[in-house]
């Protein structure tokens, strides 16, 4: 039987209480929401917190809404809500692409966006999605809130900018005109982690790509931000040749390792193909030409 090592459990009834608990309990405390990453790691003794602070009752952290020129998503919003959201399907269709292939529908009833980002697993899809969308995350502690860009959020494998005594509370996604976004993933079987996945967003203005964002999952020690490929795209008209060129950059700028999901060459190849496909679909959506 796989059972976690002993720990103490507290259930928070407000964000303030959760933060107060985390401050009091110190570095041996972990937040639990969906628990579908943390509990398996605890069973395998890869994680051994002495305290768990359960935030599942914090309904104030479960929402998807428009706030000025941003779409804001509460950290406790579950995968199933991201999948079903009509607002996201219309404005940020990359979320529905990704949510259809994250784990399975039963797991999606529990897992949360905040938990996915804080797990900081390089193979995790939403980190690539948020990288492409140039999202910001709001982190709250005893001294108040701070906002961190997604590129500064993931500081290493399974490591984030969230410090002891702090809680990720919100994901903020800037909404700009002319946007299109898409997520492409190849996995071994339904519900598995990606062999490789690519998230792409572009913003078209006057027939040219004003800005682009690309994030890759499962092809590096952390989520890969393809800054050089974004630079290749900026200022040019969307075209199949251009997206193929960005795909070549993706094969060069990722750093996959060989494992049961495939050898390095195959993963590099996938990173390129999926980057091109994601850009093609993102552009079709931006130009309202999606088949």
């Amino acid at each position: 039987m796989q059972t976690p090592a002993p720990f103490d459990y507290e259930r928070a009834t407000s964000v303030e209480e959760a933060i107060a608990s985390l401050q009091r309990l110190g570095p041996e405390a972990r937040v639990i929401a969906g628990g579908h990453s943390l509990l398996p790691m605890m069973k395998l003794r890869l994680a051994h917190p002495e305290y768990l602070v359960d935030i599942n009752d914090l309904a104030e952290l479960a929402y998807i809404a428009e706030d000025g020129d941003e779409i804001v998503i509460g950290a406790l919003t579950r995968h199933v809500e991201l999948l079903k959201s009509e607002l996201l399907a219309e404005r940020l269709p990359i979320f529905r692409d990704a949510e259809q292939v994250i784990a399975d529908p039963v797991v999606r009833n529990r897992g949360t966006i905040g938990g996915s980002l804080c797990q900081a697993d390089a193979a995790e899809d939403l980190s690539a999605v948020c990288t492409a969308l140039k999202a910001k995350v709001v982190i709250r502690g005893a001294e108040g809130e701070r906002t961190v860009g997604i590129e500064d959020f993931h500081v290493g494998p399974y490591m984030t900018a969230v410090r002891d005594g702090e809680l990720l509370t919100e994901v903020r996604i800037p909404v700009r005109p002319g946007a299109g976004s898409a997520h492409e993933k190849v996995e071994r079987r339904a519900g598995d982690w990606a062999i490789a996945a690519a998230s792409a967003a572009i913003w078209v203005d006057g027939g040219k790509i004003a800005d682009a964002g690309i994030g890759l999952a499962a092809v590096g020690p952390t989520t890969v931000h393809l800054a050089r490929a974004e630079e290749v795209l900026r200022g040019k008209a969307p075209s199949e040749d251009l997206f193929a060129e960005a795909g070549v950059v993706a094969t060069e700028d990722c750093s996959p390792s060989a494992d049961g999901r495939g050898p390095v060459d195959y993963k590099r190849h996938l990173a390129g193909v999926l980057t091109t496909r994601a850009l093609r679909r993102a552009a079709a959506r931006a130009l309202h030409q999606e088949a």
Partner: peptide
């Protein structure tokens, strides 16, 4: 759990 299917091996009873 409250009508939604969940995997009971990956939820603490306390939750």
């Amino acid at each position: 759990m409250d009508g939604a299917p969940v995997k009971s091996c990956t939820i603490l009873a306390a939750m």
